[in-house]
């Protein structure tokens, strides 16, 4: 398949876009790890874009709510989505694979990072993946996974269960996957 050249020579080249591609930013995670990333990839995060625009970047952008492991994952995602010539189909496939191997805890970390950094596409993908894992799980599994304690009385719980008994049919066993 021929690659589409988005910037034919001498025609409509946005000098600002070119500059963004070559300029790199440094992102600093909560545990002090530093990552460099092209500005064009970094600004796919609305939060980072705002920081760059407000010029409060000053070379290194600290991200105190994102740990190094999670930030590395997020950067992989951003790089792919900023890649020249990557088709929508390629990106969709990448997204699918990107989240498929992640454990529930990692998905939570990524969803929170994507929420904080305001990366819409990633946020949507991860939320959907979490929902997919939860779909056939029991209430107990959900409480354990989300660290939630019930504040219903056993009677209240039983009453609600009775009302929609069909919703409790076909629930998976509580094995973590």
């Amino acid at each position: 398949m021929a690659r589409k050249n988005r910037n034919p020579v001498g025609k409509n080249v946005d000098p600002e876009a070119q500059k963004k591609k070559t300029r790199t930013l440094t992102l600093k995670s909560s545990d002090g790890q530093e990552f460099s990333i092209s500005e064009s990839a970094a600004v796919l995060s609305i939060a980072i874009e705002n920081m760059v625009e407000d010029d409060c970047a000053g070379g290194v952008i600290p991200l105190p709510l994102v740990d190094g492991g999670t930030l590395a994952r997020v950067i992989t995602y951003l790089n792919k989505h900023a890649e020249d010539g990557a088709s929508d189909e390629e990106k969709r496939k990448f997204d699918e694979e990107f989240v498929s191997g992640m454990e529930m805890g990692v998905l939570f970390d990524v969803v929170l990072a994507a929420n904080y950094l305001d990366i819409r596409g990633l946020l949507r993908e991860v939320r959907r993946r979490i929902a997919d894992r939860m779909k056939n799980k029991s209430v107990e599994w959900v409480r354990k996974t989300f660290h939630i304690e019930s504040d219903f009385t056993p009677e209240e719980e039983e009453q609600m269960k009775k009302e929609f008994a069909w919703a409790w049919e076909g629930v998976d066993s509580d094995v973590d996957d």
Binding site: V111, L112, N115, L123, R127, R128, I130, A131, D132, M134, K135, N136, S138, V139, V142, R143, F146, I148, E149, S150, D151, F152, E157, M160, K161, F164, W166, A167, W168, V171
Partner: peptide
Amino acid sequence: VVAEILSHLPVRSLLRFKTVNKSW
């Protein structure tokens, strides 16, 4: 964040997860 995640679930799951706690 919870609402956004739950919004991708079928009604069957939602009726069940209504019993997780009062906030849900």
